[in-house]
Each structure stands twice: as C-alpha cells, then as structure tokens.
Simulated scan of single mutants.
Amino acid sequence: MAVPINLDTTLGFLSHAVVLCCILYGAGCMQAWFYYRKYSKRDSWTVQTLVAAVIICDTCQIGFLYAAVYNYTVTNQGNPLALTKLDPNLIIELIFSGMIAFLVQHFYCYRIYALSKSWLLSGFVSLTSLGSLVTLYYFIGVVLSQYTELAQLALLDNVSIVTNVLGIVSDFAITFLMIFLLQRSKTGFKNTTDVLNRLIVFTFNTGIPTSLCSIVTLILLEGVPGTFIYIFVYVSMGRFYTNCLLVTLNSRDYIRQGLNSDLTSTSENYALSIPNNPLESRLEFAGTNSTTDGISIRIDRDIHTSSSKVRRRRSA
C-alpha cells in the first residue's frame, strides 16, 4: 500500500542527492576533459565513443534530476500538495542512470573475457547486468504509465530490491573475477608480481564505490520501508560508475610510470604495454611481444645472454 509523504524523507534527501550528484558530475567532467586531452589520439574510436556516451547520459540524468527538484521547490513553492504528486522527471532520469551502469559494467565484462577467454564468465556478468537494466526499465515503464502519486513508488519496492541485488551480483562478480584473473597471471618474478599487485588493488578500489551504493540502497529499502531515503544513494550511483570508468582509463600512464621506475634497479627487463584500446585487457608473459590492443606484460631475462657475452670477451 502507498505510504504517507514526509518532507524530510523525500524532498530533503532529494535535495542532498542533487548536491552530491553535482559534485561528482563536476569530477567526472574534469576526468573526461583530462581523458580526451591525453588519450584522444591514442585510444580507438570505440573507447572514445564509450566515454562520450557515458558523459552524455550523465549530463542528461543531472538535467532531469535538477528539473524535478526545481519543480518541487520553485515552480510549486508554497504548494505542499505538489509534493504528493510524482514528477515524471524524477523517473526519466533513471533511464540514463541504468544505461551508465550497463555500459560501464560491460566495459569490465569485455576485459574479463579478454583476460580469461571464457564466454561463461563474461556471459554471467553480462546477464546479471542486463537483468538489472531490464528490471529497472520495467520499474520505469510501470511508474510512468500507471502512477501519478509519489507515495505509489513504494508499491514497487520488490522490483527495486531485485534491481539492486542483480547490480550487486554484477559488481561483485566483476571485482572478484578481475582480481582472480590478475592473481592467476602472476609468474613469480618480483617486478611483475608488484605490478599485478598494484592492478589488483586498483581493481578493488574502483569496484568498491558502486558495490557499496547498491548495498546501502538495498539496506535502506529493507531497513526503512515506506520511505524514500534510498533516493539519496540510488540517484548518485551513476556518478560513481562514470568516475570509476574514467579513473580506470586515466590511470594507465600512472601504472606505467611505476613500472618504469623499477627498471633502473633490476636486471630483469620487462615492459608493460597499456593499450590504445583498453577494452581488451590481455596479459601475456615470457617472451611475447607487447600488443597495442591489450594490457600485456613482457618479461625478457637477459641473465644467460649477459653471462655468455662475458665468457666470449674473456676467451678473446
């Protein structure tokens, strides 16, 4: 059944959400500017299109979210009954939020496939992500076609729970599989192990924000049913996906610099090639050539070569 509207748990948290979203949106725009400034001539058109699509969806969501808050606080100022009505902008913005999550999750899904060459693992992640998007769009379709009161959103709490559970499964699967595949790729050499450890930590850190958002949303839906406190977290989730994607892309040179600094103090020559197309993240070891379409680590041990050269010089 529908629940009574409370100003603090609706408009109050919605206003907080707009402030947080604007802060994260600004950070995302700066990351996007940095990306295109540095990688526009290095990355393939597919990656650049992905970044552009995510930023466009991000901008559209902020616009619709702001329009909803403006309608409640400015257009209908002094009209408390307006708060009980459902502003369609508040639901339309979820279309773009869901698409951002879908695109970013499939970016990582493709990286899982590139590392594992397993359709089963990548397919599982893809299906959970698609399921989350489908249930979200079902929620949007039902609300826009049938509901006119804000309180009626509580009637679809079960759908919201399913959407968030699938999102949690997808995010955790991405983080776990990436860490597992990177861990499995270790060769035992100290330098490459250090590099992979950095990548593992980085993968874990970028997977945490979106997973926490889904978990907190689920807790709020179950812990305080009949309220709209979860709006504060849920509408901010798209910004976290955007920033995690851009941080992942923009960190490539940082990781490579860390590798280059180690080269001066080791007798093992190795190279980390972080690609023009980071959608393909392949790790190759022991004498393979670095590629331009995947993360590859090449290890060339020159110990035997160097010793043979020394012997030739002595004999001469």
Rank of each mutant, 00 (worst) to 15 (best):
N191Q: 15
E93F: 09
Q183K: 13
E268D: 12
T128G: 02
I23K: 07
F176N: 04
V162S: 02
S132D: 00
K190F: 12
K309T: 13
R256M: 07
C244P: 02
D8K: 10
A27E: 03
V216C: 10
I295E: 00
E149F: 05
T227S: 14
V224Q: 13
T163Y: 05
S261Y: 11
P209Y: 08
T187F: 05
F96E: 00
T49W: 05
V134P: 01
I112E: 02
A2Y: 01
G28H: 03
L153P: 00
S40I: 04
G294S: 15
T10G: 06
F96P: 01
Q77P: 00
T248R: 04
F102Y: 10
A67Q: 05
V143I: 10
Q48C: 13
F176Q: 03
T193M: 06
S308V: 08
G294T: 09
F180C: 09
T192H: 09
A2M: 08
F232L: 12
Y36F: 15
A101D: 03
R301W: 08
E222L: 14
R42I: 10
R42C: 01
A53C: 15
L212H: 07
I229K: 07
L155T: 02
N79A: 06
Q152A: 10
S116K: 10
T135F: 04
Y138L: 06
Q146M: 04
Y110H: 14
T292Q: 11
V169C: 05
I62K: 06
G78F: 03
E284Q: 11
K190N: 12
R311V: 13
N158G: 13
R37A: 06
T128R: 04
I215C: 09
T73K: 12
I55L: 15
D194K: 14
T163I: 03
P225A: 05
I174H: 07
F139C: 00
T59P: 02
Y25S: 15
T9M: 05
S296K: 13
N250I: 03
T193H: 09
Y241N: 05
Y108Q: 11
V201Y: 11
I62R: 03
V69C: 06
L166W: 01
S308I: 10
L218W: 02
N269D: 14
S306G: 08
V19F: 11
S306D: 14
G28P: 03
Y241H: 15
I255C: 01
G123M: 12
L155R: 04
